[in-house]
Every structure is written in structure tokens, then in C-alpha cells.
Design a binder for these strands. Structure first.
Lengths: 330, 330
DNA sequence: ATAGGCTCGGCAAACGTTTTCCGGCTTCGC
DNA sequence: GCGAAGCCGGAAAACGTTTGCCGAGCCTAT
């Protein structure tokens, strides 16, 4: 049938323009001064022939691919698509591309994925590590080969990161629940090996101990889904029946809790809050913590795109998030 | 600080093993027979030195990158993360990678993104085109350079695709609504320039005309979000107040409709259905059409990964989907 | 016994680009 | 009017890999 169409190379552009390859390269990339007349000739020939520089050849020579590896734990969790989208836009606006890997919450897959990305010679690795412990070794080892940036989830302070502050919003949630008359607050976390969930739990414990020194710490952990949220709510309320406010580490969990509360405990006035301000939170009128995804992405890409790697290697950024109060905490 | 760590090249492996570069290459890739003894020596040296072949060098030589470009319209729509995840897994299990681009529903961005992916010399382009018309030109032009596979949304039958049948599920929905006593059915679509939405609308019109020949076609279109779903429901019900069943082109829309119905029309028994069987549909007990995402992804990657491009170029696949009935259509 | 064929190691070319180096020309200062 | 110092074009090397080709050694069949 139709043959693989021949791609125009810089050599042909040079021939067509009656210039040397070097001159064309310089004229098009602007890497060194070229007489305006020649620049025009080069550009004209290039566009006439439809020339577009081949990134593979360029990468081989420059040792930079203009590509980042992005490793996320689970695209099923709506927070990550939002993050990916923001990162991809930020990257593309600078002419950079993103190789994506979804690890399905498996640390071994994660390490393997990072290695295949390294083989592809990405300029940097953006990672939201799966597991506080099991991900560490692979992460550290990757960091010896390429600049690594932990994004959102940070499991090793020695490696650059861009994260969200968890303390303030959790404190604000607790304060609000107390202000609306609740006294017996509880926390429902995801797998405790997830960095952000752990941090939220710690923040919760601290906020509580400031208000109710010596009081019991009501806390339960489970999976990351409405189903497990419902189950967690059940065990929580059977263990501490007095509970009248629940801070969840995640919207998906909170939705499950909400279901349980609205269905089984319609009479009781139990506050519920989540994290991530997903679409579901908006629809179900669930109080949630909106993540500054855009800011996170901009910081990450800005750091990763910086020409000298020392900037990236020095990145330790924490950005603030904002609680969106809705009916679920009225 | 610490210098960029030197990556081991095949040349060093060859030196260490006392073999020629060619032999090492052949031993490691198995591209030609090599004496077992030498294979062992090559492999030992490779693993001892921690050698991993550089994909950039290889790509330059072989003219294949082992990378696909994936272009999706909007990761905010939960259908696409699911698709991306499935595609990425299928690709990685074959040692292939995916460069992702989110076009934010903008055909111009889409064309630009496709071009930057082409510069990266992807082996194939997997695209869910934004717009039935505005996307066509860019798509066709890209297809002259690289194998292109339309995935889910197809806007040009001349270009290979992997899609989902819309007719059967829509018909099943209509039948069910009729079977449960509804007579005045309506359709709410997304932007009519979205291929799948249009197909669902056509299927709806056809199913209806089979049952109610000559009856009015109640149909409204709007955006892809609960908000616009709610708005659409409002105009729909003011225009055709008798409506007692609504087939929506999308879960997000359906959720908006459901809100409107449950809030404002609590007395009336109006059936609502969506598409994609997202988490929200499950939570809100919304009848929806589950997309065979896994199957779609497997077919797509299998076609794209096939060594000779003629297979991909011949791909025209349609897979079936399944309606999941829930309370919203009881 | 020898011609022909098979196996397999190594040299070198090639993939497409950027960039170093060289050298010719112009300019400028004295 | 002359040396030094830019400016800028072109040849060629380099990035890391795969692979076409050659030829040495061995086997086999007649």
C-alpha cells in the first residue's frame, strides 16, 4: 500500500536552501547568530518542505529529551486525573511532554515503571509514591540517576518535593465542627501507608489534643472507596457510638460515610468532611478540602523544567489548600 | 554538587566482557544467534555494570520509539482516566510507553498536541477526537505521517478505530423505560459535535421511531457537567412537561438531571439514565451504560503494537457495552 | 579430499541532530 | 596601514544503538 511517508531531514532543508547543515540548525534553533538573510532562507526552505526537527536525533545529541516521567498511584482516584491534566498543560505550554505511568497502588509496579521511564531518558521523574515505606527504596535509587520530584505525596524529606499543607485545613475542619456543636470527632483514613492520609491523621490528632487534651483518639483506617468508607463508618460508630463528626482523608471515603449516615442514621446530626473537592463532593454537598492542583503543577513543572538541575534538587515547596464548607458540616 | 551520574553504555559492557559491541548487542537483544558462552559473559557484564540500553540511541537507529501518543479531550470527564489507565497498563505490559496529551476540548490544541507528539516520533497516535468536524482535518493530516487509531470517538470512518456500539444499549434503555410504564421519553446530549453523543442521540431517535412512529423527538443538548444537566432538564421539562423518562448521553449530565428531578419534582416518577457507569452513577443509584474500557484498551494496544502497520491500518473494531440497571429507572 | 554452505564474531556505517573547531572575512583601534 | 579581535559559515565529530557485510572456522556431502 502506501509506504511510510518519508520525513524531511535537516540535510534536505540545507540542500534546498543551499546552506550547510550547521547553518540551518543554527538558523532554526537560534543557538548562534546567523545572517538574517540566511535565516530567512533556512526558514523558508524548512516551511516549504514541511520540516520539523526530529526529537530523537536531537535528544541523542543534547542528552535531554524534553520529556518528564509522571508516576501516579491510581487514576481511578479523581484527584490524580486533575493533577495529571494540570501537569500536562503546564508542561506542554513549555514545549515539554509527559510519559505517564499508573502503578495501580503497587510499589513493585511503581519501581518497575520508574525504571522503564529512566530507560526512556526522561529529564526528570515526577512521582506520587504509593507507599510510605515500600516505595522508598525504588525512589531513592531512581534519584541517583535522574532528578526526582515527589508530588503531593512525600515519603522522603531528602528528596525534592512539592506538597500541600495538611495541618491548616484539618484544623479548620475540626474548629468548624466544634463551632457547630460537635464534641466527639473521629477520623477515617485511607491505607495508613499513604503519605497524605497519614499526615491528615496526624494533623487531626494534634488538632484534637489541643482542644480536648487527654481525650480519646477516635480513628479508623480502610480502603479508598465509598464501600470501604461505609464499612469504616460502621465500625467507627459501633466502637464510639457518641461520634458526631467525621473527618475523612478523602472524598471517596466521605461519600461512603455520608451514605451510611443519611441512610441509617437519618435522625442524627453527624458532620462529615472529605478531601480533594471532587465533583462528587459538589454534587453531594459534602464539605471538602480543595487541593491547589494548578499551583502544585505549576511549581512542579517550573522546577523540573529549569535548565540547571540544582534548582530542582533544591525544591521543597509546601502550598496551602482551602476548605470548602457545604451542607454536610452544617 | 554531585555530578550527573554516568550512564553505562554498551561500549563499556563490551570492553568489560572482552567482546565486540555487536556481539553484546546481539547477545542482549537476541536479534541473532550468539554462542551461549558469550551470551552469558555479555549478560554478566551487563548486570554487573548495571547496563540498561538507552532507548534514544536505539530509537534513532531502529526508527521505532516503543511509544504511543495518547490524545484525550478532557481528563475531567471520568471516562477518560479509566481509559488512560487501561491503555497504559496494556501498553506497559508489552514494554511500551504512552505520551499523554489532554486537549481541554479544544480542536486547535488537539492539532497542536498531535504535532508535538509526531515530533517525538511516536509509533502510533491514539486519539479520542474532540469535534466531529473541527478535529477532522488535523486527524487526517496526522494520519499521513503515522498510523492513527481513533479510540471511542470516531469522526472519520476512513481512519482506523476502536469504538463501542451505541445502538444496542440505547435501545435497551428505551425498552426498559417503556416496560416500566413510561411513554414520553427524551434525550439530553452533550455538545452535538461530540461523536459518541451524536451516535447516542441518533440511536435514541431510531429506537423511538420504531416504537412511536411519527411521535415528537424530544431532544436537548448542552454541556458535559451536572450543572448543564440540570439546566437542560429544566428547559426539557418546560418544553415537554409530559416527559417521564430521560436518556442522558453521559453520567455527569444524568446526575444533574437526577438532582433536578429529586429536588424539584419529587412527586413525579421520572426515569433517568446515563452513560459510562462512573463512580457517581454507582453512588447515586443511577442506571448507566458500562463501557468496556478494558476491551477497548486491549484491542487498541494490540493493534497499535502489531509489528507491521498494515494490521493497525485495517483495524475497524466495534465492541459491545452493557446496561447496568439501578434505582433511577425503577 | 575438497567444494560448498552454514554459523557467528567484529568492523563500520547509519539513524538525525547539535556543537566544537577551524578559518576566512570584516572591523576597529592605534 | 597593520595587528588583534570579532563574526559567522562549513566540515566533521559526537551522542548510543542496531545491523549489513565480510571473512574465519567448521561441518557435511559427494
Amino acid at each position: 500500500m502506501d509506504q511510510a511517508p518519508h520525513r524531511v531531514t535537516i540535510r534536505e532543508v540545507a540542500a534546498h536552501a543551499g546552506l550547510s547543515i550547521s547553518t540551518v540548525s543554527r538558523a532554526l534553533t537560534g543557538s548562534r547568530a546567523v545572517l538574517p538573510e540566511l535565516v530567512r532562507r533556512a526558514q523558508d526552505s524548512a516551511s516549504e518542505l514541511g520540516y520539523r526537527a526530529d526529537t530523537v536525533g536531537r535528544s541523542l545529541r543534547t542528552q535531554r529529551t524534553g520529556t518528564f516521567g509522571l508516576v501516579v498511584p491510581d487514576l481511578t482516584n479523581p484527584f490524580f486525573p486533575a493533577l495529571v491534566q494540570a501537569l500536562e498543560h503546564a508542561a506542554r505550554s513549555r514545549g515539554l511532554s509527559i510519559l505517564i505511568a499508573d502503578t495501580g497502588n503497587d510499589p513493585e509496579v511503581e519501581t518497575a515503571a520508574m525504571n522503564t521511564l529512566l530507560d526512556r531518558r526522561v529529564d526528570a521523574l515526577l512521582v506520587s509514591p504509593v507507599d510510605l515505606e515500600a516505595s522508598r527504596e525504588g525512589l531513592i535509587s531512581a534519584a541517583t540517576t535522574v532528578p526526582v520530584l515527589q508530588i503531593d505525596r512525600v515519603i522522603d524529606e531528602g528528596i525534592p518535593f512539592v506538597r500541600v499543607d495538611q495541618e491548616a485545613p484539618v484544623k479548620a475542619l475540626v474548629e468548624r465542627m466544634i463551632a457547630t456543636g460537635r464534641r466527639h470527632l473521629a477520623f477515617i483514613g485511607q491505607d495508613p501507608r499513604i503519605a497524605t492520609s497519614r499526615e491528615r491523621e496526624v494533623a487531626f490528632a494534634q488538632a484534637m489534643s489541643e482542644r480536648f487534651a487527654g481525650g480519646p483518639l477516635r480513628s479508623v483506617t480502610g480502603g479508598t472507596s465509598p464501600q470501604s468508607g461505609r464499612a469504616a463508618a460502621e465500625t467507627l460508630l459501633s466502637r464510639w457510638p457518641e461520634t458526631d463528626g467525621v473527618v475523612c482523608a478523602n472524598d471517596l471515603i466521605a461519600v461512603g460515610v455520608l451514605e451510611h449516615v443519611r441512610a441509617r442514621l437519618a435522625g442524627r446530626r453527624i458532620a462529615v468532611s472529605g478531601f480533594d473537592d471532587t465533583l462528587m463532593a459538589q454534587v453531594l454537598e459534602l464539605t471538602s478540602v480543595r487541593q491547589p492542583v494548578q499551583q502544585l503543577a505549576d511549581l512542579a513543572i517550573a522546577a523540573a523544567a529549569h535548565p540547571d538541575r540544582s534548582t530542582l534538587l533544591a525544591t521543597r515547596a509546601v502550598v496551602a489548600s482551602e476548605v470548602v464548607f457545604r451542607r454536610s458540616t452544617d
